[in-house]
């Protein structure tokens, strides 16, 4: 979920499903609805407008669930720290299970982290 990102992380996330990294072979899939998900990938600093939708999305994911904060902004607001529209890092809004550093993180790093989470 994009909670206020610059879309850099999204491009890297999209590319893990490309032929080069092909994350689907590890059973990792991108889903359209949180109702169908096991985990929530959150990117970007959480902006004021996106804080409530983030909570609602988190609530909509069935348990057990994991929350992965992707990128430096999601971890600690990155370069946007202290900006007026920023509510805080993802962990300030919902409990985070895993953080993937980088601005943006390398696709290989994302795949590695998700594989580690799933144990595949």
């Amino acid at each position: 979920m994009d909670a206020g990102s610059c879309n850099g992380c999204e491009i890297e996330i999209a590319s893990i499903f490309s032929p080069t990294y092909d994350a689907e072979r590890f059973g990792i899939r991108l889903e359209a609805s949180p109702r169908h998900c096991d985990g929530l990938l959150v990117t970007g600093p959480v902006t004021r407008n996106m804080a409530a939708p983030l909570r609602k999305t988190f609530d909509a994911v069935p348990q057990p669930r994991v929350v992965v904060a992707v990128g430096d902004c999601a971890r600690d607001c990155g370069v946007f720290r202290g900006a007026y529209g920023v509510e805080g890092a993802v962990s300030d809004v919902v409990p985070v299970d895993l953080e993937i550093p980088g601005c943006p993180p390398d696709p290989a790093a994302i795949v590695r982290a998700l594989r580690g989470l799933a144990g595949t």
């Binding site: 609805s33 949180p34 409530a52 939708p53 983030l54 609602k56 999305t57 609530d59 909509a60």
Partner: peptide, 8 residues
């Protein structure tokens, strides 16, 4: 919980 409405 409430029905999923894309976080609106």
């Amino acid at each position: 919980t409430e029905a999923w409405g894309c976080g609106r």
